[in-house]
Write a protein that binds this DNA or RNA. Structure first.
Lengths: 342, 342
DNA sequence: AATTACTTCCAAAGCGCTTCGAAATTGCGC
DNA sequence: GCGCAATTTCGAAGCGCTTTGGAAGTAATT
C-alpha cells in the first residue's frame, strides 16, 4: 500500500494525507483522524527511502564498528548501544551499524557521509589525536564523540573522568599503605588508557613513589590478560600488593590469579577495578565485594543520544560537551597490605 | 556532488555514468575507468536513499532488539552481531538496529517491513511457538531465525543442538557418579531453554533418576543469579553435587558460590557450563579449567548471514536450515563427586 | 454585498537515482 | 562504399514521498 492508494481510498489528495500523517497543522482534525484510522487499518507506513529522499533527512545515526577487534565490539559496546537506543527510540531514530573490515576507517566514515545514509554519527574509542574526529569536524558533519581527543575544531563530546578515577583509586591504595601498585588497562593509544595512566602516575608522583614500568600493562580487556599479567606481577620481587584493573573482565582474571597464588583479595593483594556497570556482572555481589571506580557506560550512551538530538536540532557543537565524574566505591577487595604468611 | 554533476564534469549522460559505476556490461571499459577515476577524485558516492528508492532494494538487514531486556542485548547479542557483520560487510550490507521500547514486537516488525527500510531480517530468541516467525513467514518476508520454533510455515533457521548439549553434559555427570544434578538456565519460554531442560530431563529419566523441581532454575544469565541460586542449592539436603550453568556469566556466579562454601570445583561440586565463546572470558583459562558444552555464537552469526545472502539470492527458505552439534569439552571443573570432609 | 482572513484542500514540481527503449557510433564482410 | 549487427551512449520515465504556490470554500469584518 502506498500513499497514492491510501489517498484514493480516502478520496483525498496525497498532499492532505501526507500532511495529516506527519502532523502538519493545516489539516482538519476530523480529516486527520480519518486518515490515521485508515493508515492503521491498511497497515500503511511510508516508504522510508522515498521519504528520506524527499526530506533530505534520514532518521538514522551511524556507528562504524571494527568487527575484528573485540576491544571495540564487546560487552562495552553492546551496553553502550543499549543506552543509546533507550533515548533514540523515543524519536524513532534507528541506528545503522557499519562493519569495518579493512581498517580504513576514514574512508568508511566518508562513504557513510556522502551516501547520505545517516544524519549523524557516533564516534567511540578516540585516540589522543583522532583523525576521524578531525575529518568529521572539518566536514561539519554532526557527530558526538564518546571520549575525548585533542582536536581543535569544535565538536560535541562526552567523556568520563578517567584520569580522576585512576588518580583517586591509586591515592586510596596509597592511603591504605600500599607501595607497589600495578595497573592493567586498555590498549595504548586510546585516550581513556592514556588518561588513566596519567591519573595513576600523578598519584604516585605526588607521593614520591617511583614508577616501575613492569607494573604497567596495556592490553585488551579480558580475563585471560588479567590472569596472565597478574601471575607475572606476583612472580616479581617485590610484587605489587595492589592492582588496578581497567575493566571487570580484567578484574575477573586478576582475582583468579591472586587466589591461585593462595592470597586473599583485599589482604595480601588488593584490587580496584573500573566498573562500566554490566547488568550481568555485579561488583558488589562478588566475593569479596569488589572496590570499583564506577561509571555506567549505558547511561553515557543515553546521554550521548540526547546530545545528538540537540545537535540535530541545531545547537552548535562547541556548547555540547560534558565530563562525568567517576565515583570510587569502597568495598572489600581493597584494604591495607597484609604481609603473606611464610 | 551528485550524479548529474559528475556526469556533466565528464561530458557523459547520467545513464552511462550510473552504469559504469554499477558495473553494467554495456559500457566501454575505457569510459568506465574514466568514470571510476572521476568518482574517486570527487569523492562521489550515490545517495543511498535515491538509489534504494529507484531499485527497491535496500542493502540492509534489520534486527529488532528489546533494549530493556539485558537477556536480549547483552554479550551474547554483541558477539552474535560481530559474527553477522563479518559476513555481511563483504557484500556491503549494513544492519539496522531497531530498538524496541513498548514490547509490541509484532508491530515493530510490521513497521520495519512496510517502511521498506530493510531487505531482510534476523530473528533471535524464539519461543516454542513464536508469533514473530509466524507473521514473517506468512508475509513471505525474508528472514533467518536464530534458534528454532514450531511454526509450520516454511522459514530459514539455524540452531544449535541445545537438547543434545545438556543431555550429553548431564549424562557425563551421571557417568561420573553424580546423583543430584541441578541446572540454572535461561528464561522459561525460549526454545533454547526448553530444549536444554528436555535434554537434562531425558538424561535423568534414562537412568531412572527422579527430577527435583528445586534443582531446576530458569532466569537471566548473570553471575548474580548463578551465585544466589547456587547458595540456595547448597543449603538444600541433599544438595546437588553438580550444576549445569546455561552461560559463562552464570558459571562465574556458580563457581563463586561453590568456593564461598569452602568446596572445590570438580571435587565436592562439579560444574559444566555452556560456553558461547566470548573472547574475553575463556573457559580453559579458568581455575580449574571449566568443562563446557561449546558452540561459538559468533560463528553462528556468520553462518546466518551467509544463509541470509542465499535467501536474498532467491533460494527457497525451506531448504535453508541447520542444526549445529555442540561439543562437550571435558576439563577440570567436572569430576566424580567427593564427599565433603566434615 | 464586498472585502479580508482563515481554513482546507489540491496539482505539480522536485529529491537523486536506475533503467527502458531508442539513437548514435563502430566494426565487419561483401 | 554499403548494409547489418554489435557495441556504446543518451533521453526520459519512473521509484514514492514532501512541499510550494495556489485555488476553493467558509467565516468574519467593513
Amino acid at each position: 500500500m502506498k500513499l497514492k492508494e491510501l489517498a484514493e481510498q480516502l478520496g483525498l489528495s496525497q498532499t492532505t494525507v501526507s500532511r495529516a500523517l506527519n502532523g502538519y497543522p493545516e489539516v482538519n482534525e476530523a480529516t486527520r483522524e480519518r486518515v490515521n484510522k485508515a493508515a492503521l487499518k491498511f497497515g500503511y507506513s511510508a516508504n522510508a527511502n522515498a521519504r528520506r529522499l524527499a526530506m533530505g533527512r534520514v532518521g538514522a545515526i551511524g556507528i562504524v564498528v571494527p568487527i575484528h577487534s573485540s576491544e571495540r565490539f564487546g560487552p562495552h559496546t553492546s551496553e553502550f548501544l543499549s543506552g543509546l537506543a533507550e533515548r533514540l527510540s523515543r524519536d524513532e531514530i534507528d541506528f545503522l551499524i557499519t562493519p569495518l573490515i579493512n581498517n580504513d576507517e576514514i574512508s568508511a566514515y566518508k562513504r557513510l557521509i556522502s551516501s547520505k545514509r545517516v544524519d549523524a554519527m557516533i564516534v567511540s574509542h578516540p585516540s589522543l589525536v583522532d583523525e576521524r574526529v578531525a575529518m568529521l569536524a572539518e566536514a561539519q558533519f554532526p557527530f558526538v564523540l564518546h571520549g575525548r581527543t585533542n582536536i581543535d575544531t569544535p565538536h560535541a563530546w562526552l567523556d568520563i573522568d578517567n584520569k580522576g578515577a585512576f588518580y583517586q583509586a591509586t591515592s586510596h591504595l596509597l592511603d591504605l599503605g600500599h607501595k607497589h601498585i600495578a595497573m592493567i588497562d586498555g590498549l595504548k593509544g586510546f585516550t581513556f588508557s592514556e588518561h588513566r595512566e596519567e591519573g595513576y602516575r600523578n598519584a604516585l608522583n605526588e607521593r614520591g613513589i617511583s614508577i616501575d614500568p613492569n607494573f604497567i600493562v596495556h592490553d585488551c580487556f579480558s580475563d585471560e590478560i588479567g590472569f596472565r599479567e597478574t601471575q607475572r606481577f606476583l612472580s616479581l620481587k617485590p610484587h605489587p600488593t595492589a592492582i588496578l584493573a581497567g575493566s571487570m573482565m580484567t578484574a575477573l582474571g586478576v582475582s583468579r590469579a591472586i587466589r591461585a597464588k593462595g592470597y586473599q583479595l583485599g589482604k595480601e593483594v588488593s584490587i580496584i577495578a573500573h566498573d562500566d556497570v554490566f547488568p550481568y556482572l555485579n561488583a558488589s555481589n562478588m566475593v569479596p565485594a569488589m572496590t570499583t571506580t564506577r561509571s555506567s557506560i549505558r547511561a553515557a550512551g543515553t546521554r550521548i543520544a540526547e546530545m545528538l538530538v540537540r545537535l540535530l536540532d541545531g545547537e552548535p557543537p562547541e556548547t555540547i560537551h560534558e565530563v562525568w565524574p567517576v565515583e570510587l566505591i569502597l568495598r572489600q577487595s581493597s584494604g591495607p597490605p597484609v604481609v603473606p604468611a611464610k
